[in-house]
């Protein structure tokens, strides 16, 4: 049956070509997708979801009154067509009405992530809840940590005394001065980057990184015994004792033996 044979051959040929093209294509996508150091607009869903759902329309970019948001062009090293901002150029000025978020047609910028309840219990946009990134301080180049007075980042922070506080340390170098050291608190920091923009060192000594890069993770197996709420987690835990040949005896007995 030559007809069937021809059809099969043609199908296999097309499938093979599609697979070949698809492999090159997927390599290109994988390469472009691995750009973790990108700061998204407020209310952005997780990066994995974001690159799946962002339709690259740029309406958040249009909505941004400060022109902080940029649509990634090819060659920028960021997923093509998706919005980002570079705080050292233009930080997020944290508009109260967050115009970029309602502009998003796909829900990639999710208003529920930047909404909180007001006094009457209504859900309201609140930019202070944004988690665009986290400011990190390089203590070796920050001049405040070197003992020179500077509180540029602290003063400019929209959540002053919450996201950045100044802690007074003793200057052990001179022995008689104080160090006013800026400290970032991840609970409040929105990652707006005003501090990065304001930093006076040549290359900013305080800079915003995506939170999943900037932060560690403690893991569930550590319990802070001094923290009541953390202790709650092991309320229903059971005692489990592991015995080894060494731990069978009390430590004192073990030390009194001749053989170690």
């Amino acid at each position: 049956m030559p007809e069937r044979r021809e059809f099969l051959l043609k199908s296999i040929k097309s499938l093979g070509l599609a697979a070949a093209g698809g492999l090159v294509w997927s390599g290109f996508i994988r390469e472009g997708r691995s750009a973790p150091l990108v700061l998204r607009p407020p209310g952005a869903v997780s990066e994995k979801q974001f690159i799946a759902s962002c339709i690259k329309c740029g309406m958040c970019v249009e909505a941004c009154p400060y022109e902080a948001l940029v649509l990634a062009a090819p060659g920028s090293g960021r997923p093509v067509g998706t919005p980002y901002f570079v705080p050292r150029n233009i930080p997020c000025y944290m508009c109260k009405d967050i115009p970029c978020v309602p502009a998003c047609p796909t829900g990639s910028l999710d208003s529920t992530l930047v909404s909180g309840k007001d006094e009457e219990g209504n859900l309201k946009l609140n930019i202070d809840l944004a988690k665009m990134g986290l400011a990190i301080i390089d203590r070796e180049t920050c001049i405040a940590y070197a003992g020179i007075q500077c509180d540029a980042c602290y003063r400019v922070c929209p959540l002053i005394d919450q996201a950045i506080s100044v802690e007074y340390l003793r200057n052990t170098r001179t022995g008689k001065h104080a160090i006013g050291a800026p400290v970032v608190h991840s609970e409040f920091c929105t990652g707006c980057g005003l501090c990065e923009k304001a930093c006076i060192t040549r290359k900013a000594s305080i800079f915003v990184l995506p939170r999943d890069i900037a932060m560690g993770e403690l893991g569930e197996h550590y319990i802070k015994g001094w923290d009541k709420s953390d202790e709650e987690r092991i309320k229903d835990g059971e005692d489990r004792v592991t015995t080894t040949p060494r731990s069978e005896k009390a430590p004192v007995d073990y030390l009194n033996e001749e053989k170690f």
């Binding site: 290109f28 062009a73 997923p79």
Partner: peptide
């Protein structure tokens, strides 16, 4: 590819997107 890689695969490389986004928002290497 979209299903396998979790991104809109054609939008990632589309010369159409590169062109209209380029004209509206700036080209880069598009």
């Amino acid at each position: 590819l979209s299903a396998l890689l979790g991104v809109a695969a054609f939008e990632w490389i589309s010369p159409i997107g590169m062109l209209h986004r380029g004209i509206i928002y700036g080209f880069g290497f598009g």
